[in-house]
């Protein structure tokens, strides 16, 4: 028996918004410690790593480990049926062919149950992110809205954005046929609010170029968290991380552009 309850179904809606442009289907690995998804996009350029800890749920029970293949589009359709204030419960038996989504209104007067067929997926298990945390040359924390804005604005100029980070701050730039654009963000000396701060932790400067198309998918996670963390080292994939309240995180890995 697997059962996981979240008082705020809105969190799950936002999680789906954050992955639906990158993944058409994904395996949800459920265990005693929580729910995990690790999946690459079709082009193997980016990877989504979603982690929802069991202790972050209002109720969580997982008697045996389950791997459930789910269509992200179908899941999105079902979550659209949940009211903004509804509680959501995910439920499945031990060898499931289906998963149930149960939505309950705050006053408990409305109970809606949706059943979704699971899909058989080739078990492409990615043992990538289980190694100990890599130390990165630069780690930048900045407002997620600002990051979304910069990615959107600079995407108008070209297909890629260059991130250059030094101890002073981070510079984003793009160029294309009709011109070029640069946005510099200085490290904030004393931001009034923690969520408005720009913080740079630097071992050595980095300069990396990434595809706009993927960055603009990652920023869909913005509504999950006021701050985004960008971890960078030269010639290795970017890690773009959004915390999901007290329950977990979503990390996107994106391979940099490489010189031919």
């Amino acid at each position: 028996m697997f059962e996981a309850r979240l008082v705020q179904s809105a969190i799950l809606k936002k999680v789906l918004d954050a992955i639906k442009d990158l993944l058409t289907e994904a395996t949800f690995e459920c265990s005693d410690s929580g729910i995990q998804v690790q999946a690459m996009d079709n082009a193997h350029v980016s990877l989504v790593s979603l982690n929802l800890r069991s202790d972050g749920f209002d109720k969580y029970r997982c008697d045996r480990n389950l791997s459930m293949g789910m269509s992200i589009a179908s899941m999105t359709k079902i979550l659209r049926c949940a009211g903004a204030e509804d509680t959501v419960t995910l439920r499945a038996v031990d060898n499931p062919e289906n998963i149930m989504f149960i939505f309950e209104s705050p006053n408990k007067e409305k109970l809606a149950e949706y059943e979704m067929k699971l899909i058989n997926m080739d078990q492409e298990h990615l043992g990538i992110i289980k190694t100990k945390e890599t130390s990165y040359s630069c780690v930048v924390k900045m407002p997620s809205q600002e990051f979304s804005r910069i990615c959107r604005d600079l995407s108008q100029f070209g297909e890629s954005i260059t991130f250059a980070c030094s101890k002073e701050g981070i510079k984003f730039s793009a160029s294309g046929d009709f011109g070029q654009a640069t946005v510099k963000l200085a490290q904030t000396a004393d931001a009034d609010k923690e969520e408005e701060a720009v913080l740079v932790t630097m071992q050595e400067p980095v300069k990396l170029t990434f595809s706009c198309r993927y960055l603009n998918c990652f920023v869909k996670a913005g509504p999950l968290c006021a701050q985004v963390q960008l971890s960078m080292s030269n010639d290795v994939p970017l890690v773009c991380e959004y915390k999901i309240g007290d329950i977990g995180h979503i990390r996107y890995y994106l391979a940099p552009k490489i010189d031919d």
Partner: peptide, 14 residues
């Protein structure tokens, strides 16, 4: 010119 890298180049996919 530069081309988009693939994660396979950086990580060993099990």
């Amino acid at each position: 010119t530069s081309t988009q890298g693939r994660l396979d180049t950086f990580f060993k996919v099990l």
